[in-house]
Simulated assay, not measured.
Amino acid sequence: MTVQFIEIAGQKMVILPEAEYRSLADQAEERADSEAAERAEARRLDGEEYVPASLVERLVDGEAGLLVWREYRGLSQQALGEKVGLSKMTISSLERGKRDTSAKNWRALADALSVDVDDIMPFD
């Protein structure tokens, strides 16, 4: 490695050829990517759920979280309603934002879908 040490305004600096700098930068990026992958794998092994990008896109696009997560979990409105003691009509109305429900019901819905309440409650 070809380096030159200089001092500017009392601060030591290192000058090296661009190709060597780019090589070092690439190595640092590869190491950071590898470490991030290891952390992600550890979280997955600890039970963190991965979801498909299509689910995230639907949520980002503003679709109702309750609807998106219910469909992702493969539940009909009827089946989800039965799990939490609400009617199919109530589930439908909640998904369309036509009605609200109690915090207790939102928690029950979140538990039935294995998500946080914030993942399914409307933002309004």
Rank of each mutant, 00 (worst) to 15 (best):
M13S: 11
S34E: 13
L94M: 03
E49Y: 08
V14R: 07
G97R: 11
E29D: 10
Y50G: 03
R107Q: 15
G10T: 11
L86D: 01
D100H: 12
D118Q: 05
E49I: 14
M89E: 14
R58P: 01
E57K: 09
G85Q: 03
T90K: 02
S34K: 10
T101F: 04
S23Y: 10
V117A: 06
E71R: 08
R70W: 00
A42L: 13
D119N: 09
L75N: 01
A37S: 11
A32Y: 14
A103Y: 11
R39Y: 14
W69M: 04
S76F: 07
S92V: 02
V117T: 12
P52E: 13
T90F: 06
T90E: 05
Q11P: 06
L113V: 00
L80N: 03
A110V: 00
P52M: 08
S87G: 15
S102L: 06
V51W: 03
K98Q: 15
E71F: 02
P17N: 13
I91Q: 04
D119F: 03
K98S: 13
W69K: 03
G62I: 03
L45M: 09
L24R: 14
Y21K: 13
A112D: 02
A32W: 11
D116L: 12
S87C: 04
K88M: 11
S87P: 01
W106C: 04
A28K: 15
V3K: 13
M13I: 12
G47W: 05
V84S: 02
R99V: 10
R73H: 11
K104A: 14
R73C: 09
M89C: 08
S93A: 15
L67C: 07
E29R: 13
D100K: 12
A37C: 05
D61R: 10
L94E: 01
P17D: 14
S23D: 10
Y21T: 05
Y21P: 04
R58W: 02
S76L: 09
Q11C: 11
L86A: 04
A79D: 06
S54M: 00
I8D: 14
V117I: 15
D33G: 10
V115Q: 00
V51T: 08
Q27D: 10
Y21R: 15
Q4W: 06
V51C: 04
V117E: 14
L24E: 11
Q4Y: 10
D124M: 04
G47V: 02
E38R: 15
K83F: 01
D119A: 10
A112T: 01
V84T: 01
L66M: 05
P122Y: 10
V56H: 07
Y21N: 06
E18Y: 08
S93V: 02
R44V: 09
L16M: 15
L66C: 00
E29T: 12
G62S: 05
M121N: 05
I8G: 09
V115S: 00
G97F: 05
E57L: 14
K88T: 10
V14F: 05
Q27I: 09
S102P: 05
P52G: 09
G81T: 02
V68L: 00
